[in-house]
Amino acid sequence: MWEYKKILEYPANVRRQDPDYASLVVTQFGGPDGELAASLRYISQMYTMPIPEGKATLNNIGTEELAHFEIIGTLVYKLVEGIPADVLKNTRFAPHYAQHGRANYPADAFGNAWTASYIQSHEDPVASIQEDLAAEQKARATYEYLIDMSDDPAIIDTLSFLREREVVHFQRFGEVLDLLYDYMDDYEEWG
C-alpha cells in the first residue's frame, strides 16, 4: 500500500505565471514519457519480476515517479492559478481551460488524454527492464526540451532535478538488467 507524506520530494516554484508554458510542461504530467506513465509502468511490472532486487527497484522507482507526478502537477497548478478566463483565452492554455478549467488533467502537450497504451508490461523481465531503460532516456530528453524552452530559473531548477532523477533511474535499471542476466545464467531454461 501507499502512505502519503505531506511534503513534496523537491521544491516546485514558479518565478512568474505562464499559461503557455503550463500547456507544454503538462506533458510530463500525462504525456507518453511523463511521470504518470512512468509510475504505472513500474508498479504494473513489479508483480512478476523474478529477482528481489528487481521487485524492490520497480516498487521504489514507481513510488518516486508518483512523487514526480505531484511535482509537475504543482508546477502546472502554480503557472495558471487564479488567472482570469479573459487572459487564458489568448494563450495556448485556452483549450485546456475550455475542457477542465484550471484543474490538472493528465494529457500531453497537444491535449491528448493519458492512455495506458503509452506503457508496456511483460512477464519476460528483460523485455520489461529494456522498456524501462528506454523510458528513462525518453523522459530525460523531454526534460531537456522543456528546460530549453524556459527562462524561469525556478522552473529550470525543478526540471533539472527531475532530469537528473531519470539518469539515476536509468543507472539502477541497468544494474537490475545485469542481475537478471546473472540470474538467467543460473537457470538453464532461461538461457
Binding site: 511534503i7 520530494e9 523537491y10 532486487e53 527497484t57 522507482i61 539515476v168 533511474h169 539502477r172 544494474e175
Partner: peptide, 15 residues
C-alpha cells in the same frame, strides 16, 4: 527524505 530515497534505490541493487 530525498537522501533516503537515494540510499533505498542504491541498496536495492547493492544490498
Amino acid at each position: 527524505n530525498f537522501a533516503m530515497i537515494e540510499t533505498v534505490l542504491f541498496l536495492n541493487t547493492h544490498p
